[in-house]
């Protein structure tokens, strides 16, 4: 009797019904506006991290030689930076779609106002846009991993393990980017975002191990999302994998969930006045 009555008294605070379909319709809209030129831009996106890999990993790597890992093992510089390039490319890709483009659609194209007049909810717009950013990010990551394997910077099995990690990184940064987009006021604030992103890129153990920095800076680095991502991908690529990496995954999952929730709430506040 009790079990029979229960469902009626449970208040429906959040309804997940139809959420997937409605989010997908937002992604679909992005696919519909792909034009010939934009295709070229999209497909060629994977070139960028590859160029970095050749310039910094191979070119500068020739000046550096081998680097010692924490365990004492020596690895070539390209092997050391490649996973970090992968992680930061996942970050950059997710951020460019969810900050610049997302902000433009929200503020200037007033695209979301039109969508919100339909059954689609703010959180579903956020999810749909995020999924779209991920479709691209996933393609780029796969291409980059292929190149890493071809250059013998990692093994095929390890590349397979790194792939889902890059997807998670992309989702986490995408959610973070959206939250940031709902906070900033104008295009000028993007200079701040670019500067922040650049700082992350330079100091997150990407080009040199964080042990190269003074203790205080090092602890600061340890808590940045990009460092956690680099740590995860690098461990998967070069080994060994341990509890720290489980922590990395939890950290990124938390960023994803919190980011999405906050972004959805703030969008609702901004667009549904």
């Amino acid at each position: 009797m009790v079990t029979f009555l229960m469902p009626r008294f449970v208040p429906r605070l959040v309804s997940f019904e139809g959420m997937g379909r409605r989010s997908a319709s937002v992604t679909e809209r992005n696919i519909a506006c792909l034009r010939s030129m934009y295709w070229v831009v999209m497909v060629s996106g994977f070139v960028e991290p590859v160029l970095y890999l050749f310039s910094i990993g191979v070119g500068v790597g020739a000046l550096i030689g081998d680097l010692p890992l924490p365990g004492g093992r020596l690895v070539g510089y390209a092997e050391f930076v490649a996973p970090a390039m992968l992680a930061s490319a996942a970050m950059t890709g997710a951020l460019s779609e969810t900050t610049f483009n997302f902000f433009g659609k929200m503020k200037f194209m007033r695209l979301y106002e039109g969508i919100l007049a339909t059954p689609v909810r703010p959180i579903e717009i956020a999810l749909g846009e995020l999924a779209w950013a991920m479709v691209r990010g996933v393609l780029y990551s796969a291409a980059f991993l292929g190149i890493m394997v071809a250059m013998d910077l990692t093994s095929a099995a390890r590349a397979l393990a790194m792939f889902p990690a890059t997807v998670l990184i992309g989702f986490a940064f995408g959610a973070l980017g959206m939250t940031v987009s709902t906070v900033i006021r104008s295009w000028q604030d993007f200079d701040l975002i670019v500067a922040g992103q650049f700082a992350l890129l330079l100091f997150s153990g990407t080009f040199v191990p964080p042990t190269a920095y003074p203790a205080v800076v090092r602890w600061l680095i340890e808590v940045t999302p990009l460092y956690r991502s680099v740590d995860l991908v690098r461990a998967l690529s070069l080994g060994p994998v341990g509890w720290t990496q489980a922590l990395d995954v939890l950290y990124l999952l938390a960023v994803l969930v919190i980011g999405l929730t906050v972004a959805g709430r703030r969008m609702e506040k901004m667009l549904c006045k």
């Binding site: 000046l63 000028q188 701040l192 330079l202 080009f207 190269a212 920095y213």
Partner: peptide
């Protein structure tokens, strides 16, 4: 707009200098 562009004209070089010049530089023996 000069204020926000001043940030990138001053801060970005500083970051590059620290992160790349000093950081990576210390490994180029």
């Amino acid at each position: 707009t000069w204020r926000s562009s001043a940030l990138s004209t001053l801060v970005l070089p500083l970051l590059t200098m620290l992160g790349f010049g000093v950081g990576v530089g210390s490994y180029v023996s």
